[in-house]
Design a binder for these strands. Structure first.
Lengths: 173, 173
DNA sequence: TGTGAAACGTTATATTATTACGTTTTGCAG
DNA sequence: CTGCAAAACGTAATAATATAACGTTTCACA
């Protein structure tokens, strides 16, 4: 049941998938996208994106900051937040509100609202783009006379692996 | 295509509604509910609940803290967070993750997941409990093999009043 | 009315995020 | 290829949100 082709449709990548490919694909997509848009994917921004992608579990700004320090770079919080703001603006990452953390976007080319399944066991966040959810939200908002601009949908629970084996690879790829 | 049973009351109270009644009703419901459960709605907890209910816009913990100080009470952050934790535990309030703030629950008697429409104009948060949304989320989670435990649904946009008159009574009742 | 648990006060600190301003880098017009 | 303006980045300080740890008070009830 493990699909070898990167992260195709199943929201949860297998615990054993080749995460190097995820990272490489994300960085490649980012470079192409920024090139096309005339946005500057600087060394710092690229590195921050890479760090966000290190894991499928959302990463906090200060964890990124620490790694930059270990890289030997002098950096303070604004360094990180500015890079994160850029990446958010380009749709390359999403912010997980309930965790104050950030996760790579699987499909930065097409704008979309984030819908996430977040595992309480291993911390992995899987991104959805479910039309049923989108439709239900739109209808409900419209019924209330509400003009919808952005949605935050963060579902907590247990991913398939963690249902079998509680306490799976935390923070794992 | 509007199902009246799915969204029983209009989620947005009018800008002119009698908010004193909202507060009184909420405090009354809380007292009855805590009585029934043997939970202690202390003076402090009741006051914090009242402060959360002062507005339909979510209230931050430190705003509550300030008001407690103006009340003449000596209080520090833990005072407030403990009271908020109690109220959350009893289902009397909800936490709005995207705002780090808290809002009163309209229907504390029946356990439910929070779904919120949050106005970018006036800050008001209207609580929904829309079966279509619930169903879509359950189905989508189940399709992914995910065992759903909690949901965070926070929709941002403009409420009916703020669509007409941008920059409505901010923080208003 | 004593007693144990719950609630609360207090101090300190952790975590997340932003403001303000100076310096460096970069694209690009001349 | 120079120099300029804008963008990116460094730096210091601080704001905003949240929790840990421990002592004291309050309260239900035996």
């Amino acid at each position: 049941m493990t699909d070898p082709a990167a992260t195709p449709q199943l929201p949860f990548a297998g615990a054993d998938h080749d995460h190097g490919r995820c990272i490489a694909a994300a960085l490649d997509a980012a470079a192409r996208l920024c090139g096309r848009r005339g946005a500057r994917l600087t060394v710092l921004r690229r590195r921050v994106l890479e760090l966000v992608w290190r894991s499928h579990a959302p990463t906090g700004a200060y964890a990124i900051l620490e790694t930059l320090h270990r890289d030997g770079r002098r950096a303070a919080p604004p360094t990180v937040y500015r890079a994160l703001d850029f990446l958010l603006g380009q749709g390359l990452i999403h912010r997980i509100e309930s965790l104050n953390a950030f996760v790579g976007c699987r499909d930065p080319d097409t704008p979309h609202a984030g819908q996430f399944l977040i595992c309480n066991g291993c911390g992995t966040a899987a991104e959805l783009d479910d039309r049923r959810i989108g439709a239900a939200l739109s209808e409900s908002a419209s019924d209330a006379g509400f003009r919808l601009e952005r949605q935050t949908v963060e579902l907590r629970g247990l991913c398939p692996s963690c249902q079998e084996e509680p306490g799976d690879a935390r923070g794992g790829a």
